[in-house]
Design a protein around this nucleic acid. Sequence first.
DNA 1: GATTGTGAATTAATTCACAGCC
DNA 2: GGCTGTGAATTAATTCACAATC
Lengths: 213, 213
Amino acid sequence: MASARTIERLSVYRRLLGDIDPKRRAGVYSHELAIKAVATAAQVRRDLMEIGFSGRPRTGYDVQGLAAALADYLDAPESEGIALVGVGDLGRALLNYSSGRHPKLHIAVAFDNDTSKTGRVICGCRCHHIRSSRRVIPKQGIRMAILAVPAPAAQSVATRIVDDGIMGLINFTPVRLHLPPEVYVENFDVTVSLEKMAFFTRQHAVDADEDRP
Amino acid sequence: MASARTIERLSVYRRLLGDIDPKRRAGVYSHELAIKAVATAAQVRRDLMEIGFSGRPRTGYDVQGLAAALADYLDAPESEGIALVGVGDLGRALLNYSSGRHPKLHIAVAFDNDTSKTGRVICGCRCHHIRSSRRVIPKQGIRMAILAVPAPAAQSVATRIVDDGIMGLINFTPVRLHLPPEVYVENFDVTVSLEKMAFFTRQHAVDADEDRP
DNA sequence: GATTGTGAATTAATTCACAGCC
DNA sequence: GGCTGTGAATTAATTCACAATC
């Protein structure tokens, strides 16, 4: 099976393909995708090999065919609904961002514990009280969630929704969750990113100094 | 130099240390950090070797000493200010999240192009119009930024602030930025994460099926 | 002549496994 | 006895390099 790194790049390639009008450009070369995706041409070819899609020498990869192959590989056959848990600023940003953007993934429902938010439609999405998750999540057949609650609530809410049938989640809180191993967890940690940026920005500056004659 | 992966884990270890009261527990073992950080004990030891911090057999790593060593390795000597560019829902979420949380990193200033936001203090942070970035960024000695603007504005705003002196940034837009190589860019891409979660959640389910007798 | 597909080589990241230590 | 530090081994990821192809 493809590695997480490969999946990430495939997702990027797919978006880049969206920038190409297939009526104007029928084919795209590995080195073109590579430049836009900040990768190498060989890497692109390897990744596409992984999903079993072939190009042709001289003409490259068929834009429409590749888009279809990527969709086939990355997407589920049916559209999948995602639960947003926690409708703060971040939750609203995610709702606005993702509404209608993806062909097969959409935020289907939101949960919060603030009764001024529950029972309403926020950014086009119905918001329920978290206490009704047990009823709503199985009923709508939802298997994935975005966790965007305050840190102190993270573990208990995560445990709860996993009980309700959630099998994969993106964790926007800084808490390292303790969940059964069959649940896929992706940590999206802002503090780590900030520290990494600070570290490598400093490092880049040092490198540039050292390169000076 | 340490790899990006190592830096990420060091950042996680540091936060985990914060959960330990050094008055109650003077030492911590590699396997304890490993469990909490979802890594292996050997990995933890390798990472700490990288920063030149030694533990002692039987007693493990000194909690306070390790915290100090991590701070020394990860942080700049002086506190660093970060510019937030784009004060939408996501920007506000970041402001709320990061205010006063980190000892050496803070969002020092915000920029937007919406005059209903500029000239005010939002979530404790002064918001300027983006057109004054050329004056404010150098004056405050800011070298890092968080890019949280709408996608269509991403490239032009990024180019602009790099001109103003920004050397590292976190890109929350889905745009692949074209910037000089000496600028450190970290892409934080929600669509990629969603697709990855969907893919591996599905995959986990298949695996579980296959494991059944 | 330019591009793909891929075996081989290389480089990077992780884990093993055990000596040394308290 | 249980832990660290680390050389060696292993595994994973990437890149090289070139035959095959159009």
